[in-house]
C-alpha cells in the first residue's frame, strides 16, 4: 500500500499546496489534505496549543493533529527563508517543533527550507524528503521540478492582470438596489494572509459574503509579484518579513493605482507582523488615496453579528461615496 502523507489545510498550505501535491504524487506517495476548518478542528487546536499563540497556528494544530490519525506522516516543513534578505514569521520556524511537543505527536516530515543554504537549498530539501520513499534520485529531482512547475502555474493562475476601474454606468443600477444586476459594481481588496482570508471558517466567510452582495473581491495573490515589489518600495524601509511584504505591496499597489474602491484589512489576533503592517497600510491608504479602509480582527471568539454589521456599513459607505463621486 502506498504510504500516505497528510497536508494540513492551514498556514502555508494555501500558498504551496500545488507544489506539495505534485511532488509527493510523482513519488507515488498519496497525499491526504485535511478537511476544511470547522468548529471541531478549531477545538482540537485550541486544546492542544499554547493560549498565547496566534489564531492561524491554533487552527494549524487542529488540522495537523486531526491528520495524524489518518496518515502515516504529516508534512510540516520548517520554512525559514524563501527570499534572500527577508524572513518568514518566527512561527513558521518553530512549527514542526510545536507539533512535536504535543502528547502522542504524529510522525512528522519537516525539511528545512532556507535559501541561505545555497543555490540548491530547496532541491536539497526535496531530496532529503524524497529519499524517505525512494532510492531513485533522478525520480526525486523530477518530482522537485514538477513541483516547482506546478507552483509557478498555480501562482500565475491566481494573478489577475490589468484590473481596471469598474465603469460608471453599472453604478446607476445600485440606486434601485442590486437586483437583476449581475455585474460587480464595487471592487474590494482584502489585505491579509491567504491562510486567514481563504479559510471560510476563521474569516467568517468574508469573501463569499462580499461576493453574495455582487462585489468583486481581489486578494494579494491576485497581484503580480513585480507590482507588489515595485509598490512595496514606497515603504520607509525594506520589510523584514516576506509574506507581510506581499500584503503591504499589494495594498500599496491597490491604493496607488486606484485599483479598488476600498480595502478590508484582516488581522488575526494576536499576530505581531500583521499589527505592524496594518499601520503602514492604513497610513498609506489615507495619505495616498484616500481609499477607505476597514480593519477586521479575527479571533476564536469572532462573532458573526459584529462582522456582518461592519461589512454592511462598509459596503454602504463605498457605494455612497462612489455614487456621489460620479455625480449619480
Amino acid at each position: 500500500m502506498a504510504p500516505t502523507v497528510g497536508l494540513p489545510r492551514a498556514l502555508l498550505y494555501y500558498k504551496y499546496h500545488a507544489a506539495w501535491d505534485a511532488f509527493f504524487n510523482h513519488l507515488g506517495v498519496e497525499t491526504v489534505t485535511s478537511e476544511n476548518t470547522s468548529k471541531k478542528v478549531l477545538n482540537i487546536g485550541l486544546k492542544a496549543s499554547d493560549s498565547e499563540i496566534c489564531l492561524p497556528v491554533k487552527v494549524f494544530y487542529g488540522h495537523a493533529l486531526d491528520l495524524g490519525e489518518k496518515c502515516d506522516y504529516v508534512f510540516i516543513p520548517r520554512i525559514v527563508q524563501v527570499e534572500k534578505g527577508s524572513f518568514t514569521c518566527p512561527k513558521f520556524l518553530g512549527l514542526p517543533d510545536m507539533i512535536r511537543a504535543v502528547d502522542n505527536p504524529p510522525e512528522i516530515i519537516s525539511p528545512t527550507i532556507d535559501v541561505r543554504n545555497g543555490r540548491h537549498a530547496i532541491r536539497d530539501a526535496a531530496l532529503e524528503v524524497g529519499r524517505m520513499f525512494t532510492d531513485d534520485e533522478a525520480k526525486i529531482v523530477k518530482a522537485y521540478k514538477l513541483a516547482m512547475k506546478a507552483l509557478r502555474k498555480h501562482e500565475k493562475d491566481l494573478v489577475k492582470e490589468n484590473i481596471e476601474k469598474t465603469p460608471i454606468e453599472k453604478l446607476k443600477s445600485l440606486i434601485g438596489g442590486n437586483e437583476g444586476n449581475k455585474e460587480p459594481v464595487l471592487r474590494i481588496g482584502i489585505a491579509g494572509h491567504a491562510y486567514n482570508i481563504e479559510d471560510p471558517y476563521i474569516s467568517l466567510n468574508l469573501i463569499q459574503r462580499l461576493k453574495d452582495r455582487g462585489i468583486e473581491v481581489v486578494t494579494p495573490e491576485n497581484v503580480p509579484m513585480k507590482k507588489i515589489k515595485k509598490a512595496a518600495k514606497d515603504a520607509p524601509k525594506d520589510l523584514f518579513w516576506n509574506y507581510e511584504r506581499d500584503i503591504l505591496g499589494a495594498s500599496y499597489h491597490w491604493v496607488k493605482n486606484k485599483v479598488v474602491d476600498g480595502i478590508i484589512y484582516v488581522v488575526a489576533f494576536p499576530c505581531g507582523p500583521d499589527s505592524t503592517i496594518q499601520v503602514f497600510v492604513e497610513g498609506y491608504a489615507k495619505k495616498e488615496g484616500p481609499v477607505p479602509l476597514m480593519s477586521i480582527v479575527i479571533d476564536e471568539h469572532s462573532a458573526e453579528a459584529g462582522l456582518v454589521t461592519r461589512l454592511e456599513a462598509f459596503v454602504d459607505l463605498l457605494t455612497e461615496s462612489k455614487l456621489s463621486a460620479q455625480g449619480v
Binding site: 484616500p290 456599513a313 461615496s321 456621489s324
Partner: peptide, 10 residues
C-alpha cells in the same frame, strides 16, 4: 457622505 467609521468590538 460617510468616509470612515469604527465600532467597538467585543
Amino acid at each position: 457622505i460617510p468616509i470612515d467609521f469604527a465600532m467597538n468590538t467585543v
